[in-house]
Write a protein that binds this DNA or RNA. Structure first.
Lengths: 236, 236
DNA sequence: TTGTCAGTTGTCAGTGACTGCCATAAATTA
DNA sequence: TAATTTATGGCAGTCACTGACAACTGACAA
């Protein structure tokens, strides 16, 4: 495989430099007190360029999480179809962390630094949740595809929502300063996932056998009005 | 009871006027395309004053939801202690909607208008989720109190997180234009809550009998460092 | 090597959210 | 009516973010 070319390499370098500078400044003086100009100056780049790399100031801290979620989605798609939705999601999550663990030391510490910052900064925390919700859509679509259900069906929505809820509890459980290693993350997440498995009925994950309509709205649910057990896409 | 005095009444009037004007403008020209100056002008108030009523532009659309969540919390506190957490949360939610239904027509339509706007506007949607997460903390604290558990215990966190996840799915299920009445909201939310009840083991809600450590750190997680089955507060 | 082209960057001017400050006006209380 | 509190308006300023244009720099082919 040929290397990506000088231009591309330079871009990645700048991107990482911006992230590192931002993370350092945020940790030092706080997120709100840090201006984009400072970050740009630290990397010797114009503020305008910063916004060519990251759409918002939030994004520079959130981008690593975004990468992670992309991996999660890809890994979910790679899970065998026999695995029920929730199991597949959990395994994909573990694989994702494993992949993160394979990065070099700088990558790993950068990721952990970002996570800690996100959890301890209200503005970033909100942004992180926002991202997770956006990703939720994609996860729902993938689960629906795997299971051969409509993406409007309630069950995939519920399953994915439950999954992200569990992950969030796991992430919150990594208190301040408790996140020294990616294995800490795995441990916390696994604990919550186990609690979830323990709390749920076996097979909740998939439509009850003989339940043709699954959890509602099969193909021709007569009335097109509301309350037919489906959930529309609804956002542009 | 003596009426709140002219000053207070005037303030409430301005607040509602700002909300109404904002909701109309948002619906007309979109959230992003509407400036705070426009909203203020529509109510004949200086932009500076707008920010004395609402900390951010988002808040003017989110404030009704915020009121709702406050009610939810109060109703949860009023539920009998015998009810297990998830049940109590669900009942409190229903009561909250009932209370909203008791407002006058203007109040109700305002609320529905705001909800529809929030669901259809990415920026507002994100803000709404943010709010819900903040409220989640309070719900966790209340559940922990009811159950006599530490607010750091994993179980209340999981239960509340699951609850809000279900509510969110219910809210998303109210597609665009499908929210004509508060009863639509009840219907969608109830459907998801039923799915949740059906999916969960009876009693998952409360620590297993004889399980001293509640949901904590199963047997054999020796190290007393992180991951002891608790979740710290972690935000200032 | 050189010229062309596409992608990247800096500069600049501008919009809009949001804040602190101070003077003024209105409501409350004495 | 006078004194005090509280809401408001105006203003100047900061900061996130954007569009437009010009200068630069790798990529690539002649």
């Amino acid at each position: 495989m040929s290397r990506p070319g000088l231009r591309e390499r330079k871009k990645q370098k700048t991107r990482l430099a911006l992230i590192d500078a931002a993370l350092d400044l945020f940790a030092e003086q706080g997120y709100d007190a840090t201006t984009v100009d400072q970050i740009a100056a630290a990397v010797d780049v114009s503020p305008r360029t910063f916004f060519r790399y990251f759409a918002t100031k939030e994004d520079v801290a959130l981008s690593l999480d975004a990468d992670g979620q992309e991996i999660l989605l890809a890994e979910l798609a790679a899970r065998p179809a026999e695995e029920p939705p929730f199991t597949a999601l959990g395994r994909a999550m573990n694989t994702m962390i494993t992949i993160l663990e394979q990065g070099d030391t700088a990558d790993r510490s950068r990721f952990l630094k970002a996570r800690e910052l996100i959890e301890s900064t209200p503005a970033l925390f909100a942004g992180g949740v926002r991202m997770m919700m956006q990703n939720e859509r994609l996860l729902v679509a993938e689960i629906a595809r795997r299971e051969g259900m409509s993406p409007d069906d309630l069950l995939p929505h519920f399953a994915v929502s439950l999954f992200t809820a569990a992950i969030r509890v796991g992430l919150e459980a990594c208190g301040p300063g408790q996140l020294n290693d990616l294995s800490d993350l795995t441990r916390h997440v696994d604990r919550v996932m186990e609690l979830a498995e323990r709390s749920l009925r076996p097979g909740w994950d998939r439509p009850a056998p003989g339940d043709g309509t699954a959890s509602g709205a099969g193909p021709g649910s007569g009335e097109g009005t509301a309350g037919d057990g489906s959930v529309p896409d609804g956002r542009e």
